[in-house]
């Protein structure tokens, strides 16, 4: 017997129709974005509107890449930063999360509360102090401000991984300790291999975070050759925006496409990861 509320044919049908209408609205911007990217300039503002160009202008894409000037450099820069931050976040937060979940040391949970409290402090507070610190280190204009901190266990990922490590049976550690395994080997050879799904979530979130980051590159990078894709796109928009919408949309598609593909490749990791962030506390 199904007793969940709203489980009547009438509510289900109406609900379904509302959802379909909402989904169409939600999908429309993607359609318009790709459609515009394939139009001739005159077609972008044609009246009546052209929904889909009759002869798609595929050359808009190479043209947009050309107009962005350093597109391939932006891509390479973004990928380098992503690779560094993903490696750093996954390794360092796993080590720290292990210390917060699999070793029982006095005061552990109190220190963890400090970690949680630290997450409440908005990033805006540290902008100026960190900028001036990086200036002293002569890091402005380099990638270092964008990746070094990821090797120091970002609190949010420690939190996520700790939740996961706590669900693994305690006996794993006990048995290995009796066998004389060092703590580091237990971590490296037993716990980490068992935690692949959770590590994948961290890797994915960090990748998305670095790929999408705008504020960091905006304040720390000053030479266009060091720009990331997000910053490069914004730069392109502020120089050529407002007129050549077809090229701008082509550029936006190019910056969005990799993450969309990534999403479809690891949809399960995504949805489970998001669900975890909300429910497990």
């Amino acid at each position: 017997m199904r007793c969940e509320p709203g489980d009547t044919p009438l509510i289900r049908t109406t609900g379904f129709l509302v959802l379909v209408a909402g989904a169409l609205l939600s999908f429309l911007p993607f359609f318009w974005m790709v459609g515009t990217s394939l139009k001739q300039l005159s077609e972008t503002t044609a009246s009546p509107p052209i929904w889909w160009p009759s002869s798609p202008q595929w050359h808009n894409y190479p043209q947009a890449i050309n107009d962005m000037r350093h597109f391939w450099l932006y891509l390479a820069n973004t990928l380098v930063i992503c690779a560094l931050t993903v490696t750093g976040s996954v390794l360092s937060s796993a080590v720290v999360a292990y210390g917060f979940s699999r070793i029982n040391w006095p005061g552990r949970d109190k220190v963890f509360l400090v970690l949680l409290a630290g997450m409440m402090i908005p990033g805006a507070v540290s902008i100026v102090p960190l900028y001036s610190l990086y200036r002293h280190l002569d890091w402005i204009g380099t990638f270092k401000p964008l990746w070094v901190h990821s090797f120091l266990a970002p609190a949010f990922f420690v939190f996520l991984l700790r939740q996961f490590f706590l669900t693994l049976p305690k006996d794993l550690n006990e048995a290995a300790r009796i066998d004389g395994c060092s703590e580091w080997r237990i971590f490296w050879q037993i716990i980490l291999p068992l935690s692949r799904p959770a590590l994948a979530v961290v890797a994915l979130f960090q990748f998305m975070g670095s790929w999408n980051d705008f504020f960091g590159p905006l304040i720390y990078l000053n030479d266009p050759k060091t720009f990331t894709l997000s910053l490069g796109l914004q730069n392109f928009q502020s120089q050529h925006g407002g007129t050549q919408w077809n090229y701008l949309m082509a550029a936006a598609v190019l910056v969005t496409m990799p993450v969309v593909i990534l999403f479809f490749l690891c949809q399960k990791t995504f949805t489970e990861g998001i669900a975890t962030t909300g429910t497990k506390n």
Binding site: S26, F30, M208, Q234, A252, V259
Partner: peptide
Amino acid sequence: FLPTIVPAVC
């Protein structure tokens, strides 16, 4: 869900 993965600048 798809729009949430679009980079803020895009």
